[in-house]
Design a binder for these strands. Structure first.
Ligand code: FES
Ligand code: FES
Lengths: 176, 176
DNA sequence: ATAACTCAGACAATTATAGTCCGAGTTATG
DNA sequence: CATAACTCGGACTATAATTGTCTGAGTTAT
C-alpha cells in the first residue's frame, strides 16, 4: 500500500472538518508537514474519481464533492492507487514442461486454485475497507481532540489566507 | 504481493503430490519453466520457516516438513515476503503545523483512526488466507486433471533422474 | 493590468523487486 | 578411495515502481 494513500486520506479528513470553505493542496501540505508537489499529484486523481471538486483562483482549493458518509475508504484507495490487483497471476501452470509448449485446455480452464484463494482474500480486504466511510473515521478521531483544538486549526488557516494580499508575502514560514 | 509467492506455492503443491521422494529446486524450476536461480532463493526462506526440509547430495532436494493440511497459505506468504505490513503508517498526524514541532500527547496516543481501518482490513485478509491449507488447494486442483496426467508427471521426473549418471549428460533440454 | 495564487502534467532520485552469478558442501558412481 | 555431478546457500546486478521535485498554463482578487 503506497504512502500517497495515507496523505490523501488525512487530507480528506481535514476537508470533511471544514465544509463550505475550500482548502488548497499547498496549505494542506504545509499544514501537515508533507511535500507540496507530491500532494499536488495526488489530488487530481481524487478529482477524476469524483471524490473532491476543484475551484481555481487565488482563494480556490478543493472541496468534498459528496457527503463524508457517502465516501468509502475503498473508493479513495482505488482512486489513488489505480485499482491494481493484490496478486497478479502469471499463469505459470500453463508452462509445465510435460505439455511441451501447448498446454491442454483442462489445465488453463477457469481460475487457478491458488489464484482463487488470493482473490477471496482480496475480496475480504476490500469488503472491510468498503464498510468504512470518512464519516466513521472522523467520528472515531473527533472524540480525542479537546474542543479548543478545532478553533486553533481555523485560526491557523485564517492567518494563512490573511497573508494573501499584494503586500504581505506569504513566504515558506511553515517549512524549515 | 510478490511473484515469488506464486512460484513457491505452486512448488509446494508439487511437493505435496509426491510425498516421500525429494524434489530439487532445479527440477521444479525446469518443470514449471521458471528461473532456476530465483527459485533457489525462495526455498531457503521456506526451510527457515519450517515448511520444507532440505536433503543434500546428488539425489537430494526438498520435502514437505509437515502434513499439507497443517500448512496454511498465510504461513507460506509470511515466510517468503517477510511479514511486512500492508500499510506502514508514517505518523503524519504528529507533524501538524499547529503543534509547532512538539505534538501534544493526546494527538499521538493510541493508533490513528486511519491506521486502525487498515489494520482491520489486513486482519480480514490474513484470516482469509489462514483458513486455507495446502490440502484444500490440492483438493480443488486435483479434480481437474485426468488420471493419466499424474503418471506423465512421474515419468517426466523419472526420466530426469535417470540421466544423473557419469555418462549421460543432463544438458538443458528443458530450456530454450 | 497586475501579481500571486491555483491546478496540472512532465522530469529525476530513490527504493524494492526480479533475476543472475558463483562458491562450499554432500552423495552416488566407478 | 577419487571423481564428478549434483545439492544448497548467499552475494551481486538489472529492472520496475514509487517517492519526490520541477516548471508551465490558467484563474481570480487586488
Ligand atoms: S497459475 Fe498463477 S496462481 Fe496458479
Ligand atoms: S498518522 Fe498514519 S494513518 Fe494517520
Amino acid at each position: 500500500m503506497t504512502a500517497g494513500v495515507e496523505y490523501g486520506l488525512h487530507c480528506l479528513l481535514w476537508l470533511a472538518s471544514s465544509p463550505g470553505t475550500p482548502l488548497s493542496s499547498r496549505d494542506l501540505a504545509d499544514f501537515q508537514g508533507i511535500s507540496r508537489s507530491f500532494l499536488a499529484k495526488v489530488f487530481p486523481k481524487l478529482e477524476k474519481a469524483g471524490i473532491v471538486s476543484a475551484s481555481e483562483g487565488i482563494n480556490g482549493g478543493y472541496l468534498l464533492a459528496r457527503q463524508p458518509g457517502d465516501i468509502t475508504v475503498l473508493e479513495v484507495i482505488d482512486a489513488i492507487e489505480g485499482k491494481k490487483p493484490l496478486f497478479d497471476c502469471q499463469e505459470i501452470r500453463g508452462r509445465c514442461a510435460v505439455y511441451r509448449e501447448r498446454p491442454p485446455s483442462w489445465a488453463t480452464k477457469g481460475v487457478c486454485a491458488i489464484h482463487a484463494v488470493m482473490l477471496r482474500a482480496e475480496k475480504a480486504m476490500r469488503d472491510s475497507l468498503a464498510s468504512q466511510t470518512l464519516a466513521d473515521i472522523a467520528g472515531d478521531l473527533g472524540g480525542k481532540a479537546p474542543p479548543e483544538f478545532s478553533d486553533d486549526v481555523r485560526k491557523w488557516l485564517a492567518d494563512r489566507t490573511k497573508g494573501r494580499t499584494r503586500s504581505g508575502a506569504t513566504e515558506d514560514r511553515a517549512l524549515s
